[in-house]
Amino acid sequence: MSIEQLQEEANTENTIKEEYKLWRENCRFMYEFVSETALKWPSITVQWLPEHISRPDENLIESQLLLGTHTEGSETNYLKLASTQLPIQKGKVNSKIKITKKFENNYEINRARYMPQDGNIVSTINGGGEIDIYKLDDEDKKSLFHLTHHTENGYGISWNPFKKGYLASGSDDKSVWIHEISDKVNKIMSFENHEDIVNDVQWHTVNENLLGSVSDDKYMNIYDIRISEKPVLQFYSPDSDGINSLAFSPFSQNLIAIGNGNSNISLIDFRKLSITPGSQGLLHTMMGHSDAITSLEFSPTKDGIVASGSQDRRLMIWDLSKIGEEQVQEDAEDGCPELFMMHAGHTGGVTDLSWCPYKDWTLASVADDNIVHIWEISGNLLNEGVPQEVDDNELE
């Protein structure tokens, strides 16, 4: 490595440290609470589990999350079940992550997602494209089913929210598969229409028969599993540098968000899509990140709120109701009107995020820095009031 490269690395590291220090100094204005837990190995995936126990007399909610490991092959990889506590009201709780159970896996866990109809059933897709199905209460800590139909690394995995056991997956091998998982595994169908790696797959949040996939080939494909093994609708994003993430709004059946390799987020009107390849349906482009989008998720409890994670170490919260609002010069310098908040506490690229389904404005996020963040957005920001300081004891 040259002297110039070493100097550039040192400058980057110093910049990251300075930005992190500034973020910590401003936490009291931005969060009801925020906690950081260091892991031995980075987790590329995170998801809140729906089951929780509320203890009002102790001002806490007993919560659980899914995590993974990325050991680069030097140690065994695991799907991890983790526990934490969330405060019901302002107050001190033990929000540090505790690993309560581990399930072996052959490769790094790229994504882990629970079945909506049964939170005890979890699917994972790994660095070899293998899919494993686990039962979290299984004392053997081994997968129930091990699927090897994909031949390369995979990130896309999604359970159908209506058809119990229907699991979609996507991989670097350019294919999308659907299986039904019950007491056995049944193949439903497969799609091989993308010309490059498939980065994400998601079932529609209203129509049980619609599935979306996005790829480095710059296409979003929409499939209707009742009709054929070809897309029924497509969206082409020529300047995207590939599409990495896909999210359907849980409140508006016609609203789709995609996260692009060029750092932008595209909002799409489902009704205006066509089977003819093109950019028909593009409603708006949100710009604010400076590197590729890695994760994208609509809030499950607040209409028009979406979170995005990026390789730029930032996680951004967007309020779609603010699109098009006029801004004064000072506000415009901070970003577009729909950019509601920036979470800047990670020192590595953000790899995944998850909205808490039972506590408003609360998220978990993971990054290449081996840190899990759990945080709740300040009520002062939500109410657009005058910022008030949070006691240092509430920031872990």
Rank of each mutant, 00 (worst) to 15 (best):
I256N: 00
I125N: 04
G170T: 02
E104M: 13
H284K: 10
E195T: 14
N380C: 07
N383D: 14
S308T: 11
N11T: 14
M1S: 12
I265A: 03
L255S: 01
L39V: 12
G127V: 10
L273V: 06
Q327K: 10
G385F: 04
V366L: 03
V214D: 01
G261C: 09
S299L: 01
G281T: 01
S143R: 08
H179M: 11
S95M: 06
R24E: 15
L283E: 07
S279V: 03
N106V: 13
N207C: 06
R113C: 11
I61V: 13
I317W: 01
N26A: 09
K359M: 12
K40C: 03
L395P: 01
G335M: 06
D118F: 13
Q7D: 07
P87F: 12
N221R: 08
I225L: 05
C27H: 05
E51S: 07
G127W: 05
E58D: 13
I275L: 12
S158K: 06
S215C: 07
V214I: 07
T301N: 06
I256H: 03
S43K: 00
A82F: 12
I197Q: 05
T71W: 08
R111M: 11
D303W: 08
H343F: 13
Q311C: 11
V386K: 07
I178N: 00
K21V: 14
K230L: 04
I258W: 03
K80P: 03
D140N: 08
L320W: 03
E18M: 12
V34I: 13
D369R: 04
I374R: 01
K90M: 15
I243V: 12
S54K: 14
M189T: 13
H194D: 02
A247K: 00
I225K: 01
Y219I: 12
F162K: 02
E18L: 10
T148I: 12
W355I: 11
K174S: 10
D319P: 13
C336H: 06
F162W: 14
S213A: 03
L283A: 02
I44Y: 10
S249L: 12
I99D: 00
L6P: 04
I275T: 14
S266P: 09
D368N: 12
K359S: 11
F270R: 01
E108V: 07
I323Y: 05
L395D: 00
N59Q: 14
Q85V: 11
E19C: 11
T285F: 15
R314T: 10
P116F: 02
S182W: 05
L144M: 09
F162V: 15
E384F: 15
S252E: 09
L6F: 08
T12K: 11
A332G: 05
Q64D: 04
L79T: 05
Q64M: 08
P231K: 00
E62I: 14
E32D: 11
